[in-house]
Design a protein around this nucleic acid. Structure first.
Length: 297
DNA sequence: GTCCAGGTCGCGC
DNA sequence: GCGCGACATGGA
C-alpha cells in the first residue's frame, strides 16, 4: 500500500468526481467504498489495479492507495508521482480559495476543499479524451473511450476485462481501416491516429508540456498545433494543466450561463464570458463551480 | 427522414 | 481576422 498526503482543505470524494473523467475508463468510482479505481500501466509495461480512498486526519487528508499486487520501490515511486499528478495534489489553490471566500455561495460549496479536477496520468490520454468530447454527446464520448481502452490497452492480468489506457505506440500500430470500423470515432479517427503516430515516433513531445515552463499563450499554441484541438479543447487542456485563466466555451457553457444570467436572451460568447471576468486567473474554476440548476436530462 | 451533440478544419473573403 | 459548409457517429 501507498499513502499520499495533502494538507486540508481537501475533499477527496468530491474532488475526484467533480470532473467527467471519473466516468471514463480506465477510471471508475466505486460508490459503496467511496473509492477511485484505476487501471494503470507502468513504464516497465506492468499493468496494476489501483484503489484509492481518502482518510481524514487532523490537518491533512491521507489518500490510501491499495495496489493489487506487490510492486518494486521504483514502481511505487512512479505510481506516487503519477497519482499526485492525476489528483493535482501539488498545485496551490490558496488564492482561488481566498477569492471564493469573498462570495458566500462559492465559499459554501468550496470550503471542504474542491477545485483539483481529475486528470489522467499522461497528457496523451487527456488529449485523446478531450478530442472525444468535441461535437458529440457525452454518452458517445463514454463509448468511444471505452472502445479505445478495451481494444487497444493492455489487460489487467488478474481481470482481463479491465485494461489500461493504450500507449501511443499501441494506437499508432493500429490498422487504419480496422480502427475506423472497430473504434468508430467518426472523423476523429484520423486525428487520434495522427497524434499517436507523432508521439510514438518522437515527432511530438506531449508529456514534455506537463512541466515545460511556458506561458499560457505559448502552451495554448502548442496544444492547438495538434490536429483536432481547437479553442474549446485547448482551453480544456489548459485547465487540466493547471491554467485556469481561460474559459472553454462550448454548447454546455453557453446553455448554462445563458440560463442563469441571461434567461430568454441571445447573447454573444464574449458577453457570457464576461460573467467570470473578475475571477482573473481562476475563471475556469469560477465557471465550473458556479451553481447551475441541474436540469433533469 | 431530420436534427444535433460539452467543435474543428479548410476555405474564401 | 471572420463566416460558412463539411464532417463520422449514433441517439432523439
Amino acid at each position: 500500500m501507498l499513502t499520499l498526503t495533502i494538507n486540508k482543505p481537501y475533499d477527496f470524494a468530491a474532488s475526484v468526481r467533480d470532473h467527467g473523467w471519473i466516468s471514463l475508463v480506465p477510471c471508475r468510482w466505486l460508490d459503496e467504498q467511496q473509492a477511485l479505481q484505476r487501471v494503470e500501466q507502468l513504464s516497465t509495461g506492468r499493468v496494476v489495479l489501483l484503489h484509492l480512498t481518502g482518510q481524514e486526519r487532523a490537518r491533512t487528508v491521507q489518500i490510501e492507495v491499495q495496489i493489487n499486487e506487490a510492486v518494486t520501490a521504483q514502481e511505487a515511486t512512479e505510481l506516487e508521482d503519477k497519482l499526485r499528478w492525476m489528483l493535482k495534489l501539488d498545485e496551490n489553490f490558496d488564492e482561488f480559495y481566498r477569492q471564493a471566500a469573498q462570495d458566500i455561495s462559492y465559499h459554501h460549496r468550496l470550503k471542504s476543499g474542491r477545485g483539483r479536477l481529475l486528470r489522467s496520468s499522461t497528457l496523451f490520454e487527456d488529449v485523446i479524451k478531450t478530442i472525444c468530447t468535441t461535437n458529440i454527446t457525452w454518452s458517445q464520448t463514454v463509448s468511444m473511450v471505452s472502445r479505445i481502452v478495451t481494444h487497444l490497452g493492455d489487460p489487467l492480468p488478474q481481470n482481463p476485462k479491465l485494461h489500461a489506457f493504450p500507449t501511443p505506440a499501441q494506437i499508432a500500430a493500429a490498422d487504419d481501416l480496422w480502427f475506423q470500423d472497430t473504434i468508430r470515432l467518426g472523423y476523429r479517427n484520423a486525428y487520434v491516429l495522427q497524434l499517436a503516430r507523432e508521439v510514438a515516433t518522437g515527432r511530438r513531445d506531449l508529456e514534455g508540456l506537463k512541466d515545460a515552463d511556458l506561458s499560457t499563450k505559448d502552451l495554448k499554441k502548442a496544444l492547438k498545433d495538434i490536429k483536432g484541438i481547437g479553442d474549446y479543447a485547448a482551453n480544456t487542456l489548459l485547465m487540466l494543466l493547471g491554467h485556469y485563466h481561460l474559459l472553454a466555451v462550448d454548447s454546455e457553457f453557453r446553455q448554462r450561463v445563458t440560463a442563469k444570467y441571461f434567461p430568454n436572451q441571445q447573447v454573444s460568447d464574449k458577453t457570457l464570458s464576461e460573467i467570470y471576468e473578475a475571477w482573473g486567473d481562476w475563471r475556469y474554476l469560477a465557471y465550473w463551480f458556479d451553481d447551475f440548476l441541474e436540469e433533469a436530462k
